[in-house]
Structures are given as C-alpha cells and as structure tokens.
Design a protein around this nucleic acid. Structure first.
Length: 339
DNA sequence: ATAATTTGACCGGT
DNA sequence: ACCGGTCAAATTAT
C-alpha cells in the first residue's frame, strides 16, 4: 500500500465513523422523541396536520440519509479496495480479495463455493469475515423480530451444553444483507437465550416479507467507543421488549461490539438458496422442547447495556419503567409463523 | 414442486 | 490440531 491509499483509507474511515456517530445520535433522538410522544400524547400534531407522524417521519428521513451515505461510502470503499467497514472498521490480513482462497476452486471466490458436487467436496470454502458491529442480547424468547432469518447452521460448542444456531438474513441473496445472528441457550438458565447479532441489516425491510412492524427500531447498545447508542438493527430488541412489557420477561443487552469478523461480499452473493418469506421468528424448532416456555415466569427486569468481551466497560442500568417508556415505539405485531 | 431446515464437510484463524 | 463459522447436499415441511 502506498501512502496515498493509506491516507485515503484513513480519511474514509474517519468520514464513515463520523457518519455512523451521526446516525446513532439521530437514532437516539428519534428514540427520545417517540418516548415523549407517548408520554404526552402528542398525537394532536398528527391529526391536525394530517401527517401520520411528522417527527418520526423526519427522523426516519435523517436516518435514511445517514444510512445511504454510509452505504455509498462503504461500497465505494469496497470498490477501491480500501476496505473500511462501517461498523467494525478494519480489514485484517484476510481481506476479501487478497487472501481469497485460491484453494477453493481455482481462485474464483465468487460462486466458486458451490462446486462441490463435481468430484470432491469443497464445501465450506469461504472467506472469513472481518469485524462487524456485534452485540449480544439475552432474552427468554425470540418469538419475533421483524426480520426474516434463515438458519444456515448449528454447531455444538465446546464446553457448552447447548448447540449454537446460526442465522442469516433471508434477504441476503437478493439484497446482500449481511446481518447474521447466533443463538444459544444459556447454560445457567436454559430459559434464556443469548442472541448475538452481527452486523446491521442493509436490506430494505419495507419490501421484504418481514415488514411487519413500523420502522422504528432501536435498542440501546454500546458502540465500539463505549458510547451509548441506539442502533439500527435493534428490532430484535424491540420484539423482545414487547414481550417484556407484556409478561415481564426480560431482555438484556449484555454486550456490544465484540470483535467479530465480517467479510464476505465476495463470495456470498452466489448462493442459490431460495429466498422467501420464511419469517423465521421463533426458535422452537431449534430447541423444540424448551422454546415454548410459559410466559409467566418472572425475571429481573433490568436492562443493561455495556460491552462484553475483552475490554471491560461499566454497565449502566435502566429500570423497568424507564425501559418500557424507552421502547414504546415497537409495533405490537404478534404473528409468528413458525409456531 | 418449492421452500426451509438439518447436518456433516470444510475452511480460516488461533 | 482444534474450534467455531459457513457451505451445500440431503432431508423435511409446506
């Protein structure tokens, strides 16, 4: 790398970082607005103006603007091979293209993977991910979230009683959405699931099958700088929050921004898996025995956020009341097709 | 018939 | 060499 490209990279990263920060701030603002709205019944404005929800509309626009800009920069970055990731930042040695497994079939990382049948299996040939925004949530159920997930794997984890399941956004093939999540039952409390979300959704939810909730999704997480942030892909949180409000179950965001790798792009769009409206939203098929727990159990309703993993950051706590009001914008959609 | 899940193979990182 | 994450053929569900 020459000095120029390094500089470009650095600048680009900086710009993206700033944008992300702006995005997150806007999201927070939106969160606060919606909170106030519910607190004070500000629906007057809507009725008078005939606008369904001017404030949120505006906020959504701002967010959309941020998101688009970030996306543009990000894709520009990928094109120029600068590899600045929006959320994780960083491209290790295993870059998409650079270290692409030539071994995997002649170097064509694109859709090389699927040739397997030919003679020998070259399964699992893929490029490792780089970092991506990651956060962990604990929940009693994962009944729903507005995203459609598709399970692509399950693995027994060392020293873990329960297997870990892997899901990716259903719209990955069509929209290239890179969001994934991992779900694992907690050993200490099998009624709890630890859900690790990796990467934000980039799919267009509105035209997706899962657009079952309104576009107000937030959750409180800590971003990489340990700042409180409400991020885009927190719908899952909302889904769970909903339950929390309904039956006092708990949901806990326990960690964010662990170093995950994310990558791909290169070899990922090539899949031939179908797409569809699977609206996966329940884990009953993962752990059929335990999934449908009764909703009456009570857990501590502390919602805390912080960061897990290596660096230790303090956690801040929010009590139930705060939490409820904080997440009043979720959509009461309650339709699980998986049950 | 099509779509989604399961499951063992395979890969990259450590 | 081991472990966790991903792929994709096979299987199951719709």
């Amino acid at each position: 790398m020459d000095a120029d490209s390094n500089k470009t990279k650095s600048i680009s990263r900086n710009v993206v970082d700033q944008l992300v920060e702006g995005y997150e701030s806007a999201t927070q603002l939106q969160l606060l607005f919606s909170q106030q709205q519910s607190d004070h019944h500000i629906d007057q404005t809507r009725i008078v103006s005939g606008d369904p929800d001017p404030v949120n509309k505006l906020m959504a626009k701002i967010l959309d603007s941020f998101h688009k800009t970030i996306s543009v920069l990000d894709s520009f970055d990928q094109v120029t091979n600068a590899s600045v990731l929006v959320e994780g930042s960083r491209n290790a040695s295993c870059g998409d293209d650079s270290v692409t497994p030539a071994s995997c079939n002649g170097g064509d990382s694109g859709d090389s993977r699927k040739k397997l049948g030919a003679g020998k299996g070259k399964r699992g040939c893929y490029t490792r991910k780089k970092r991506s925004h990651t956060w962990i949530v604990e929940a009693r159920r994962i009944d729903e979230d507005k995203y459609a997930w598709r399970k692509y794997g399950q693995k027994q984890i060392l020293n873990s009683k329960f297997p870990r399941s892997y899901f990716r956004c259903t719209h990955k093939p069509t929209q290239g959405c890179k969001a994934t999540k991992q779900v694992q039952k907690q050993e200490q409390d099998p009624n709890l699931f630890q859900i690790t979300y990796i990467g934000n959704h980039t799919c267009n939810v509105s035209d997706a099958t899962q657009a079952k909730t309104e576009p107000l999704d937030h959750g409180i997480v800590m971003d990489s700088d340990n700042k409180m942030a409400a991020t885009i892909a927190q719908d899952h949180v909302d889904a769970n929050i909903q339950e929390q409000e309904n039956d006092i179950s708990s949901l806990v965001v326990i960690g964010v921004d662990m170093v995950k790798e994310e990558d791909n792009n290169n070899g990922d769009q090539n899949k031939d898996y179908c797409e569809g409206s699977s609206t996966y939203s329940d884990l009953s098929f993962v752990w059929p025995d335990k999934m449908m727990l009764d909703d009456r159990q009570h857990y501590q309703n502390h919602y805390y956020h912080g960061e897990a993993s290596t660096t230790s950051h303090q956690f801040s706590f929010i009590d139930n009341g705060q939490l409820s009001s904080l997440f009043d914008s979720y959509c009461p959609y309650e339709g699980t097709s998986a049950i």
